[in-house]
């Protein structure tokens, strides 16, 4: 059994890189967890596609206001200094390059930064939402993901095999095993679980891991 980080721990690690004052969009589902682990003393402002800046925690059950939801259609609350706006302004924030960070989930990420996270190919009902807009808008696009699929197949590949969400858009990947940057069309290993050898990590990765500098131990608190 290979040791690995829980989803909460991956989210915690990604949260440590969000700067004070950053405007941030978190993808629906797993990436929403990143908001829980904001480091003390830093203030990030969260954006949701449906027209809110600076929303906060979910309300207590039974007190939901369904005019106050996030992109995942979950009820949220407002923080002081929140703002509402319509959908075209919301995506002007996205595509106009005004967001500092977008953190998204992934089916696959390629070493050239291609992302596949919206469709598993033929069959079923396709749905894209705002993912294709976000990957070309935010100044920094990061992915949080398990390092391999449930079947143990690599999710970090030399090229994506599933339909793309965006081309050459991802710059950092936080996985259950490592933190990997995408630079110059290559996977560059920055951090890995201390108990995992480089060879073991490489065997679980579909593209070549480059190690041009020091690799830090990926150490995350129990959550």
């Amino acid at each position: 059994m290979i040791p690995k980080l829980s989803n909460a721990q991956i989210a915690w690690r990604a949260a440590q890189d969000i700067e004070d004052g950053a405007y941030v969009n978190l993808g629906i589902g797993f990436p929403e967890m990143v908001a829980r682990y904001q480091p003390e003393g830093r203030e990030a402002i969260f954006h949701t596609e449906n027209g809110i800046l600076n929303f906060g925690e979910p309300p207590a059950e039974g007190t939901e206001d369904w005019d106050l939801i996030n992109a995942g259609k979950k009820a949220v609350t407002l923080k002081p200094g929140a703002a509402f706006f319509h959908h075209a302004d919301s995506f002007a924030m996205v595509r106009g390059g005004h967001l500092d960070v977008a953190i998204l989930g992934a089916y696959q990420v390629a070493e050239n930064g291609d992302l596949a996270n919206w469709s598993v190919g033929a069959g079923g009902v396709p749905a894209v939402g705002g993912a294709m807009d976000l990957v070309h808008g935010a100044k920094r696009v990061a992915v949080i993901t398990e390092h391999v699929t449930k079947k143990g197949e690599p999710k970090l590949l030399s090229r994506c095999t599933l339909p793309l969400t965006g081309v050459a858009c991802v710059t950092r990947v936080y996985t259950s095993l490592a933190v990997i940057d995408i630079e110059g069309g290559r996977f560059v290993l920055r951090e890995k679980l201390p108990s995992l050898s480089l060879d073991a990590l490489q065997s679980l990765t579909g593209g070549e891991l480059h190690v041009p500098g020091p690799v830090t131990d990926l150490i995350v608190p129990e959550l």
Binding site: E49, V125, P126, A127, V128
Partner: peptide, 17 residues
């Protein structure tokens, strides 16, 4: 899935714009 309704899928920001 029964082919009885047509779907044009549009990215959300593109739809708004």
């Amino acid at each position: 899935l029964a082919g009885e309704i047509e779907l044009e899928l549009v990215p959300q920001g593109t739809l708004a714009e």
